[in-house]
């Protein structure tokens, strides 16, 4: 059974004047356990909206999201999220940021810090345990944000262009680290990006969304072994195919 099941999801954004915008139209998607899914598409194709609906931060106009077979309503700790913007709480140290969800569960301070320690280790930032977010680089902040989302032990990790604000070099490092984290924690990950390169490097399955209205253009399984080489011919071939598919969907309309 799928962990996450997106069923006939349609989302309209109603504005005060003019026609409502159709952000998503009848989107269906099944995501299996421990899969790494990337959703790609041009900006404005509704990929972030879809992720936010799965997170429970937006409602659907029609359709529903099932998590292990039961419909989701609103946010809950079974879905972790990493945002594109830096979302760490500046008033909390690294370890307390990671332990935040445990704090919300009412776990005592000593115990939750101990639990958070495990995730601090996974992101290799032990020496920054007591640092505050403003003392960290962009890449480090996103690593802490990943650890914070994981500390909740969610069933699925949602990532909304988490490396979008990073420079190309850091971005490549982060992608590699994310794959290691994924291998270690065995999470189901849904990752939104506009970078085809990033998607081909990371994903088991790539979902191409086409814009206005946002709907699924194509779903591609990537069976290249990891770690993938960006310069390999198969990698380039796949990237070309996806880019063409995106271009086609953009020009038809």
């Amino acid at each position: 059974m799928a962990v996450v099941s997106v069923q006939h999801v349609t989302k309209l954004f109603v504005r005060d004047e003019g026609e409502p915008t159709v952000a998503l139209k009848d989107v269906n998607l099944e995501i299996e356990e421990k899969q790494f899914i990337c959703i790609v598409g041009a900006s404005g194709c509704g990929k972030t909206t879809l992720l936010r609906i799965i997170a429970g931060l937006e409602t659907t106009t029609e359709g529903s999201i099932l998590l292990n077979g039961s419909p989701v309503e609103g946010t809950d700790t079974d879905r972790g999220m990493v945002f594109q913007e830096y979302s760490l709480f500046p008033w909390k140290s690294v370890i307390d940021n990671i332990a935040f969800s445990l704090e919300m569960q009412g776990i005592p301070k000593a115990e939750r810090r101990e639990k958070a320690e495990k995730y601090l280790k996974i992101i290799h930032l032990e020496q920054f345990r007591d640092a505050y977010p403003h003392e960290l680089s962009g890449g480090m902040r996103q690593r802490v944000a990943i650890a914070r989302a994981l500390a909740n032990e969610p069933k699925v990790l949602l990532m909304d262009e988490p490396f979008g604000a990073l420079d190309a070099q850091t971005r490549n490092v982060m992608q590699r680290e994310l794959l290691e984290i994924w291998a270690e924690t065995q999470k189901t990950i849904i990752f939104v990006t506009h970078s085809v390169d990033e998607a081909v490097f990371l994903a088991d399955k790539i979902v191409i969304l086409s814009p206005r209205p946002g709907k699924i253009e194509e779903v591609i399984s990537v069976d290249l072994p990891r770690m993938r080489h960006r310069t390999a011919p198969k990698f380039a071939e796949l990237r070309k195919h996806i880019l063409e598919s995106m271009e086609k969907s953009a020009t038809i309309r």
């Binding site: 997170a55 429970g56 931060l57 609103g74 946010t75 809950d76 700790t77 879905r79 972790g80 999220m81 945002f83 913007e85 830096y86 979302s87 709480f89 935040f100 969800s101 919300m104 569960q105 914070r148 989302a149 909740n152």
Partner: peptide, 18 residues
């Protein structure tokens, strides 16, 4: 910032009071 509120929501602050 909206992102702090949303991060709070997905991390378990489900009520206004929290």
């Amino acid at each position: 910032p909206k992102v702090f509120i949303e991060a709070g929501k997905v991390l378990g602050c489900t009520k206004n009071s929290s």
